[in-house]
């Protein structure tokens, strides 16, 4: 006669084996998914690291035909564009997020929320086109300003929706506690609710920045590109993605090498923003 413990033991071994097998399959699947990521990173690193040196980071591009030179203008240009974009994306995005979470009710809020979701799925080149019509044409010049607006518009829905979700995580009872202290709602919203979820919101903003830092298409016909220093926001400005694009479609071997170096710098920039975002967001100890 077979005892209960024998049956139990049989089932156990079988189940344990299945469990291990599934575990292995998932591991392999994860590996397959990660392979492109690591191969891209690795390839960019191998191709780019040789051309990165001090002059690449600090000098202007060399004239065509001469060797040397760098992408300092593009690096600075990307930073300028990011700052401009952040000003637009943060003010508008945060305001929208606060409205949706704290005040928005009924149809209007639904429409705004839907529009934000739509906006985030609009191809970035279309947004570039929109800014081209809105700013470049009337000003009759490509400009850093137009580039910043294009990137800023791309940031708005990401920031708005992440801010909304994070503000909604603050329990309603916390808002009531603020109101019960005799504080007006706007003070409760800004100094208690917003302040309380600031680390998460900063993370959202940084992720939005990381996303637009590598955008190329909307910059092609807004910021255009510039081989020289540009401190005038109404003039075209260089940026890493556009510089990488122009260099890599050029026929010069030297430029190809520099494009790889630029790509590596861009990847590292985005990577460090992402890492920074992780560092900022250390969740609060929650008891609920």
């Amino acid at each position: 006669m077979i005892t209960f413990s024998e049956i139990a033991a049989q089932g156990y071994t079988k189940r344990k084996f299945k469990n291990r097998l599934m575990c292995l399959l998932f591991f392999v699947a994860a590996l397959v998914a990660l392979t492109p990521l690591f191969s891209i990173m690795g390839y960019v690193f191998i191709k780019g690291v040789g051309s990165i040196n001090w002059s690449f980071l600090t000098q202007l591009p060399a004239p065509v035909g001469e060797s040397g030179g760098g992408m300092a203008n593009a690096l600075v240009g990307t930073c300028v564009l990011i700052v401009l974009a952040s000003i637009i994306g943060m003010t508008s995005g945060l305001a929208t997020g606060i409205y949706l979470s704290e005040y928005g009710r009924g149809k209007l809020a639904t429409i705004i929320r839907f529009s934000a979701d739509m906006l985030s799925s609009v191809p970035s080149i279309v947004i570039g086109l929109f800014v081209y019509i809105l700013i470049v044409r009337p000003m009759q010049s490509f400009s850093a300003l137009a580039g910043g607006v294009a990137l800023g518009v791309i940031m708005i829905p990401t920031i708005a929706r992440s801010a909304e979700e994070l503000l909604k995580l603050v329990p309603a009872s916390v808002r009531e506690a603020g109101l019960a202290l005799g504080l007006p709602r706007w003070k409760v919203t800004i100094w208690i609710v917003l302040k309380g979820s600031l680390s998460g919101i900063i993370t959202g903003v940084m992720l939005a920045i990381a996303r637009v830092a590598g955008e190329t298409a909307p910059l092609l016909f807004t910021a255009l590109g510039n081989r020289f220093w540009s401190w005038n926001l109404t003039q075209p400005i260089g940026s890493l993605p556009v510089q990488i694009f122009t260099y890599s479609i050029s026929p010069f071997e030297e430029w190809h090498r520099q494009a790889w170096a630029g790509a590596l710098v861009l990847v590292l920039l985005v990577f460090s923003i992402n890492l920074g975002a992780r560092f900022v967001f250390r969740p609060q100890i929650s008891r609920d």
Binding site: A177, G182, W191
Partner: peptide, 29 residues
Amino acid sequence: VVIRRKIGMVFQKPNPFPAASVFDNVAAG
């Protein structure tokens, strides 16, 4: 808003202000 300064309230579940120190919680009002 003025009334609530005179009539305070404590709720069912403790609801401290998030990301605020002990001092800032009490001093918030």
